[in-house]
Design a protein around this nucleic acid. Sequence first.
DNA 1: TATTGTTATACTCTATAACTATA
DNA 2: TATAGTTATAGAGTATAACAATA
Lengths: 149, 149
Amino acid sequence: MTTATKDHLHTAAGLASELRPSVMRLARRLRQVADDREGLNPNQLSALAVLVNAGDLPIGELAAAERVQPPSMTRIVNGLEERALVTREPDPIDKRSSRVHLTPAGRQIVLANRRRRDQWLAVRIAELDEDEREVLRSAVRILEKVNHA
Amino acid sequence: MTTATKDHLHTAAGLASELRPSVMRLARRLRQVADDREGLNPNQLSALAVLVNAGDLPIGELAAAERVQPPSMTRIVNGLEERALVTREPDPIDKRSSRVHLTPAGRQIVLANRRRRDQWLAVRIAELDEDEREVLRSAVRILEKVNHA
DNA sequence: TATTGTTATACTCTATAACTATA
DNA sequence: TATAGTTATAGAGTATAACAATA
């Protein structure tokens, strides 16, 4: 390893150890802000969010996405179905399977939580200088690069 | 509300709705990286992290910090004590109470997880341009401002 | 014979209530 | 009489195993 690369890594390591706690603290606070659970447990809320992002999914794929076993997802979806937040849409091709489909009410819960988090953050961002906002705008693009690496 | 303030908020809202998912995605990935649980459950790992940050604490304060009830914290600490990751140090003044104290092994688990996260992030940061790193360095200060607001 | 999803059952973790020891 | 912590017990949620229906 060359000295230049070493310095490079050293700089990156120092920045990483500062950036990590900042990002994790902010994420933790943002999670707490959205604590309007509508009587749902975290896994139910999280399953709804997956469906908003990925669209309708069979139970098995939803279970895999949430890293729980299929029987657990059956239970989670049962609870959501009882509250009319999702429906099971029979797969026309494979009669063993059905896709879990968001109702408008289910979608609204996810979007409302996102709105609440965005508003909390927007208030804090509005208190910054325009220069600082410009830095954050640039940072967003870089964070996305890191996320997709 | 004046028009200027309204525009201000609009700008902040747009930035917030971009920054929020970036920060939450990165935090999620960082959490997954540190998935070397050493056979501990999330609450046990989290309690160890609180002790690293706050120093020795009585069971009650540790329970409050973790937002669980004291009986639950008794159980969590029992598990950690069995693995020799913490000890109960009797309070010399109040004989009803004892402080939960990290052993070197317990501290090491938390520090090792942080190191693992930092290293994962440092590798990705090392792949960026120096300009981009400079933006992130500025962003850290601003994120801390947001965190403390 | 393999796969999707559900049902049956046991286990883990948490909270509330009751209890012990000390203040 | 109040407080710190533990023990007892019940409730919520998850996983593994066994099963039904379909591919």
